[in-house]
Design a protein around this nucleic acid. Structure first.
Length: 175
DNA sequence: GAGTTTGAAACT
DNA sequence: CAGTTTCAAACTC
């Protein structure tokens, strides 16, 4: 490995203009936005999607604030029962983090089950190379039908954003 | 806390 | 690719 991981300061300085826009527009709108939102996930292409996060994350995850900046999968911990935390249903898996302090059952998203975890990650990226990158883009648009985009089921509303022409939602009231 | 609703993901 | 099913979070009571 000849590439040093970026420091926290470097990471925050790597925010794209879009991310900056989103984050700036969050605070006045989003009533549940803690300031920590300004720390985006580092899912840059230079980082392997199969690279495991630091082992201590299994201890620290549950103490982290809610991460609405993902647009989807807002919660910090999951409660998966059937997916074994190896599918995109799982908020931890989507963030490519190990489960830790979650209420999940039959979890395979752990350091101890790294083989299965990596296989699942690989399978996911094979079927959709953008799978983990797109999860970090709240502006990708929602597809809501019944919520009027005024509930947190809506990716846009959950991220504190108004819907745009990128969305395919119906009966949208989130303008 | 249990049950319902919702929309994304997964499956057929 | 469209329709259906499964899943887990959000929501309601």
């Amino acid at each position: 490995m000849d590439v040093d991981p970026p420091s926290e300061e470097q990471k925050s300085s790597q925010q794209s203009p879009f991310q900056v826009f989103c984050l700036n527009s969050l605070s006045p709108i989003n009533p549940f936005s803690p300031p920590q939102f300004a720390q985006p996930m580092d899912i840059s292409p230079s980082v392997s999607p199969f690279q495991a996060p630091a082992p201590e994350s299994t201890q620290s995850v549950s103490t982290l604030p809610q991460r609405m900046d993902l647009g989807i999968m807002k919660t910090t911990t999951c409660k998966c029962k059937k997916s074994q935390c190896l599918k995109m249903y799982c908020c931890c898996f989507v963030r490519q983090e190990y489960c830790g302090g979650c209420g999940c059952m039959d979890c395979l998203n752990t350091k101890a089950t790294e083989t299965q975890r990596r296989a699942a990650l690989e399978e996911q990226t094979e079927s959709n190379p953008q799978a983990f990158q797109s999860a970090d883009q709240p502006g990708r648009g929602c597809n809501c039908k019944k919520s009027g985009c005024l509930k947190k089921y809506c990716d846009c509303f959950g991220a504190g954003l108004v819907c745009t022409n990128l969305c395919r939602c119906q009966s949208c009231l989130n303008h």
